[in-house]
Each structure stands twice: as C-alpha cells, then as structure tokens.
Amino acid sequence: MKQETLFVLDTPYRQKLHVEGFRFGRGEKSLCVVGAMRGNEVQQMYICSQLVRQLKWMEHHGDISSGYEILVVPCVNHFSINVGSRFWAMDGTDINRMFPGYDAGETTQRIASALFEAVKDYQYGVHFASSHMSGEPVPHVRVLDTGYQNADLANLFGLPYVMLRKPTPYDTTTLSYNWQVWETNAFSIYTKTTATIDEASAQEAVTAVLRFLSRLGIVKYNCHNGYISTLVHEEALTNVMTPCGGIFRRLVDPGQFVEYRQVLGQLLDPFTGEVRAELTSPTNGTVFFAVDYALVTEHTTAFRIIRRLHS
C-alpha cells in the first residue's frame, strides 16, 4: 500500500486540506473508489476505510494480481465533516455538483478538478454515494443511462439490485456522469445509511467491490457469489407520496415485499397523536426506498416500490 497526498488546498484559519489516496498493486489503472464528498457521508468514508484495510491485507498476502493498480480515496471533504456541514462549509456548494471541475474556477470547482485529474483514466470507477432524498434505500448499484454505460458489468458486484437512472440536468455535474463521459465504467453504490454507520451494509459493500475485482481477475478473493442482480429502471418505480405533513410512523422496511392496499405507514398529528392519514401500497411489490425520519411534509416521497416484484 502506498499512501499519497493527491492534492492540497490552502485555507484561511485552518490547516491545509490534504486529500489522501491509497494505492494498491502496480500496473494499468484498473479501479478507483471514492468515498465521502459531503460532510455527513460517514458511512461512505467508513466503507472505504474497511476496503483499504482489506486491500492492505490482500496485498501483503499476494492476493492482488500483477499488472493492476487500485486507488481508494476515502474522503475528499473532511473540512465539512469536521464542522458538521453536508456541503462545503464556506459557501454551501456541493463538490459532487462541480465535475469535471475547473482548475482556475471557484474553490469547489478546483477541488473537483484536482480530484478528477487523480481519478480519471481508470477502467472502472466506484463512488459510494448518498442521495439528495434523505431515506433508506435497499443496497444497490446505480448506473446513469448516459449512452456510455455498461449495466451488465454492474451485475458483477452481486448486490440485489442494479438501478438504471436517466440523468437529469443536475446529474451532469456529478463524478459518476463525468467518469462515464471520460470512458470510465462508473458505478454508484448506495448502502442503507449516510450519517451513521450500518455495519452490515458496509460490509456488504466492501464484499461487493472485492467480488467485482475478483470476477475481473484483479484480486483473488473467495466469497459467496452474491445475487444475480435484478435490473430496475428508475422511472418504473412507483412513488408513494404523503398526502399531509406530520409525524411519520413507518410500518415496513426497504427490501420487504408488500401487497396491494397494505398499510405502509401512518401520519400522525404531532399534538394529538391522531392518525391523519394512512399510506397504502398502490401495488404488490418490493420496497426499494423508505423515508427514515420522524417528521415529514406533505408531498414527501415516503416509499418507492418495485412493482410486482417478490423480494
């Protein structure tokens, strides 16, 4: 393992921001893994740390094939992590809305540019991501449908689902989108949590990356074969919206099969505890995403369901 500083940013009143990378093996640029770009992506940084630990052990035991290089960047934005801000604390901008970056531009454009310079040119790219929709998804690999994607490769992670998403204008400035444009096969992996550590899904994510590398012959790693992933098109998901605001009582979990008209959750009056509304499933299917916070507004996407799919 070789630890190196990928780039340094000077800052006022604090120490310099050093963005660290961990390289394993030597040879063609095979896989790059990027973790936390936002200040609350603790789970994403943790997964990378566990991957670094595992790859270090494997390299020591000769389990990384010759001719391949792997780079892991656990955290790009510890400046925001250390002050509890999801976005760049100075101006509220989001590094993952700045790619491919601009080296003469604003601060987060420069960070994105320096990071992209370090992580482009890899054959495969994995970003441990978090969504702008706060909630709990089933662990899955997300691939942007840019026309450059290879969704079949996403099956090699062996996670239960691969989701294909049509990019919106704001997706065009993400790392995954730009990786694809620059001919890296890019995958975003979503696990159960963001600001807290979920050990089981973190371990599942580490195993998924090692399984992917093993199937490509880059590492030797003997593990369970995982799932034959189910491909889900995002636009085919059924959203269940809240008809009012209030306290949210969730009655089903992501990954669970639900039946048509089954009660998925309740909305309670925050003062009297009366049930204001019940959310029922409009279809048989598997819960792909569920809100995980106690208070919701009207018109919140409380659940996303894969229609007519048994879990």
Partner: peptide, 11 residues
C-alpha cells in the same frame, strides 16, 4: 400550499 410537519404550511 403544502403542509409542514407541525402546524403550519409552506405557501
């Protein structure tokens, strides 16, 4: 107009 969690609405 969209109801917020506690008492008020976004308008």
């Amino acid at each position: 107009s969209l109801q917020l969690p506690v008492q008020e609405s976004l308008e």
